[in-house]
């Protein structure tokens, strides 16, 4: 097995195609492991990982923690709400204090784009970006591509549309990088106010008509409208957004082919997708969650194998 070309997972844009394939092949093995009666391997018993969450998270934090524990790593958790960050401590000071406790790897979510890159230049530990502002969320993009590969056999050549709030979404950006890297065709669909200006430079087409986008695609990745990141009003009302960009069963059944529906969660049922779509057999939302653990185990295992004794 070759090894990753990087020492940190800061974003998909720092990976090459061989890295992505290596992560997927390793995740295949871990997916088998997490379906055993005993779902744990002892590989990382001498590794300590700190999960630093400076921003709220349930799914990602649980998924990372489970992945780390399935690999037998020692895990310490930190969330900004109960920490000295509130007392004015800087990011580097916080992290260096934690690293003095002999931590080998840091999994970090931070509201500021580039926080992971900044940290990687100042500290020695291996860093995994678990989401930095509206920048990247690499493990989400990897698990999304892995789920497409699992469902459709391959990512290359597939048509994928990302629907919703592209502007505020780190999931969208990481997904675009990952899908393009693997040779998929990508379109984005949403209100023009929520499509970033630089989108053309990513090699992605914009489609403002949801029906046309769905007719074109093999996979639709539905994103949540991130109200918490919106300082102004980007569309007139949620009801109007749902009418134009929400997927319901009637719309889905009227297409002449069966497309795959994905969602990174958390779902706003009745806004971007209706409940009957979220619970339909076309939706692979819960497979994504399961694959998330396998992908994160693979990423952590591969990065840990580069930490020298």
């Amino acid at each position: 097995m070759s090894e990753l070309s990087v020492d940190h997972l800061l974003g998909i844009k720092y990976l090459n195609e061989a890295d992505v394939q290596l992560i997927f092949e390793t995740a295949d093995h871990f997916k088998e492991v997490i379906n055993r009666p005993i779902k744990k391997v002892p590989s990382l018993r001498d590794i300590t990982i700190a999960n630093l969450f400076f921003e709220n998270s349930t799914r990602t934090k649980l998924s990372f923690e489970l992945a780390e524990k399935r690999l037998s790593a020692d895990v310490i958790n930190f969330s900004a709400a109960q920490s000295s960050v509130k007392k004015g401590e800087t990011l580097i000071d916080t992290v260096n204090n934690i690293l003095s406790m002999k931590v080998d790897m840091v999994v970090m979510r931070h509201p500021n784009p580039g926080a992971g890159v900044f940290l990687s230049k100042h500290i020695k530990a291996s860093i995994v970006n678990a989401g930095d502002g509206a920048h990247e969320h690499p493990t989400q993009a990897l698990l999304d591509s892995y789920s497409i590969r699992e469902k459709l056999g391959d990512v290359a050549g597939k048509n994928v549309v990302i629907v919703g709030d592209i502007l505020h979404s780190r999931v969208a950006l990481s997904n675009i990088f990952a899908l393009k890297l693997q040779g998929a065709n990508v379109k984005v669909c949403g209100p023009m106010t929520l499509i970033p200006k630089y989108i053309d430079s990513l090699g992605v087409e914009v489609e403002t008509n949801l029906r046309k986008a769905l007719e074109w695609c093999d996979v639709a990745n539905m994103l949540r409208v991130q109200n918490e990141r919106m300082d102004i009003s980007y569309f007139p009302s949620t009801r109007e957004y749902t009418q134009q960009f929400g997927v319901n069963k009637t719309l889905l059944d009227s297409l002449d082919k069966e497309i795959v529906i994905m969602h990174p969660g958390p779902i706003n049922r009745g806004v971007e997708i209706t409940s009957d779509v979220a619970d339909s057999k076309q939706a692979i939302i819960l497979n994504q969650v399961e694959n998330g653990v396998a992908i994160r185990m693979a990423v952590i295992y591969l990065l840990a194998s580069k930490i020298k004794n």
């Binding site: 097995m1 092949e25 390793t26 093995h29 002892p42 590989s43 690999l71 591969l302 194998s305 930490i307």
Partner: peptide, 17 residues
């Protein structure tokens, strides 16, 4: 994943099915 030489050799360990 059960070997006792993880991170001890020069080459990464290669997993199989």
């Amino acid at each position: 994943f059960y070997r006792d030489d993880f991170r001890r050799g020069d080459k990464p360990l290669e997993a199989n099915k």
